[in-house]
């Protein structure tokens, strides 16, 4: 009996020792040198693996950051300046600050403003609807409302509003990773500068058709009249292909462009009500 126990213990110990020796040498042999800072940098990143930086995941981005010479063109939109400052201190470099940004849906084609002319019944994705035709509202630039942006958002920051049929960005959750920008087959979503109190002024239309054509499909389309362009004292507005565009980096939120727009295509969001309401403007802004 004792013998059996002794043999068992001895053989187990021998096997264990043998395996340990083999493992030790294998580990030595196949050891790969890795910069230990990669681990540290990765920990400092948000770990969402959203791809907003342009790299497949946080680990990958950490490797790129460690290997890079400077932070030029490297930015984690999710973590923002704070994270980049942390990374910079780990790597002993200067951080490049960037303005925080937020995704903005530049279409306001709610049922109130555009009537639906057809009924789409194909596969329920914007990408396929877009490749098939102009969409239920007839505007070839407008939101198709099938929610490819919602499906791709890793932060639950976009939701479809069942009443308007348009996606809505929740500014507090949006990390500006840009996934929705890429997912939208029509390029409706834009990353714009994040202002105080989430205030925004933007042209909520990307229609480049001639004014009359655009207006036929949607009451709040930009008709390219350039009145806003003339009203802007800061040269923040440019006109291209019958379409006005407000550069969010140049815009000073003076709101001069909003009342001049004949189609209410420019939205102001997050501002207190004007003292002297010129006309009943922007019936449905953000709520």
């Amino acid at each position: 009996m004792n013998q059996i126990i002794i043999y068992t213990v001895i053989s187990l110990v021998a096997i264990g020792a043998g395996a340990a020796v083999i493992l030790y040498f294998v580990a030595k042999l196949f050891r790969t040198e890795e910069d230990p800072r990669i681990e540290v940098v990765e920990k400092a990143l948000p770990g969402a693996n959203c791809g907003g930086c342009g790299y497949p995941g946080c680990r990958n981005f950490a490797e790129v950051l460690v290997r890079s010479e400077s932070f030029d063109g490297l930015f984690c939109p999710v973590g923002g300046n704070e994270t980049m400052a942390a990374v910079a201190s780990i790597l002993g470099r200067e951080a490049i600050e960037q303005e925080p940004r937020v995704a903005v849906v530049r279409c306001n084609g709610t049922p109130e403003f555009r009537s639906l002319k057809t009924h789409y019944e194909g596969a329920p994705t914007c990408a396929i609807a877009h490749s098939l035709y102009a969409g239920e509202g007839g505007c070839p630039y407008g939101c198709l409302g099938l929610g490819d942006c919602v499906a791709v958002c890793k932060f639950d920051a976009i939701q479809m509003n069942p009443v308007t049929g348009l996606p809505e960005v929740m500014d507090d959750k949006c990390t500006a990773c840009g996934a929705c920008v890429d997912a939208c087959p029509r390029g409706i979503i834009e990353l714009r500068k994040k202002n105080k109190k989430d205030r925004k002024i933007y042209v909520s239309c990307i229609n480049e058709e001639k004014g009359a054509t655009a207006k036929k499909n949607c009451a709040v389309a930009c008709i390219g009249c350039s009145l806003c362009f003339k009203a802007c004292p800061y040269e923040a507005i440019t006109m291209n292909n019958n379409l006005a565009f407000i550069d969010s980096d140049k815009c000073k939120l003076c709101r001069k462009c909003v009342p001049v727009c004949p189609t209410n295509a420019i939205l102001e969001i997050g501002f207190p009500p004007r003292k002297t309401e010129p006309v009943e403007k922007v019936a449905d802004s953000s709520q």
């Binding site: 019944e121 194909g122 239920e136």
Partner: peptide
């Protein structure tokens, strides 16, 4: 009412 549109 409205024409139905779908791929073939």
């Amino acid at each position: 009412d409205k024409l139905v549109v779908s791929p073939s």
